[in-house]
Simulated assay, not measured.
Amino acid sequence: MTDASETRPDADDDRDDAHLDGVEPGAGCAEIWEHLSERREREEE
């Protein structure tokens, strides 16, 4: 996956969809689920 700043230079943590930063455009359910799971794991550390 690429860095959020590469895919969405206007990304802002206050946006409703900020949790999807770093997800490639056109990603399906499995990719989104994986991204969110990885994010949760990093936040728990």
Rank of each mutant, 00 (worst) to 15 (best):
A27C: 02
D14E: 12
I32D: 02
R15K: 12
S5P: 00
R8F: 10
R40Q: 12
G22C: 05
E34W: 08
S37D: 14
C29L: 15
A27V: 04
R42K: 12
R15P: 06
R40T: 15
D13P: 15
L20C: 05
S37Q: 14
P9Q: 06
E43Q: 12
P25T: 05
E6R: 06
A11Q: 04
S37C: 15
E24L: 09
G28P: 03
D17K: 01
R8G: 08
R42P: 10
A11K: 04
R40I: 14
G26A: 02
A27D: 05
D21S: 03
V23G: 02
D13K: 07
A27P: 05
V23D: 00
L20K: 02
V23H: 00
R15N: 11
G22I: 01
S5T: 00
R42G: 10
P9N: 07
D10T: 05
D16R: 10
E43N: 13
M1S: 12
D21H: 00
D10Q: 08
E31V: 07
G22Q: 02
E41L: 11
T2V: 12
H35S: 06
D17V: 01
H19Q: 11
S37N: 14
D10I: 01
H19G: 07
W33F: 14
H19S: 08
R39Y: 04
D21Q: 02
I32H: 04
D10V: 01
D10C: 03
V23Q: 00
A27N: 04
W33K: 15
H19Y: 11
S5L: 00
I32S: 06
A11T: 07
E43C: 13
A11H: 09
C29S: 15
I32G: 05
D21K: 00
D16Y: 14
W33H: 15
E41R: 14
D14K: 09
L20D: 04
R8K: 12
E31R: 07
D16A: 14
R8T: 13
V23F: 00
L36A: 08
D3G: 03
E24V: 07
G28H: 03
R40C: 14
R40M: 11
E38S: 11
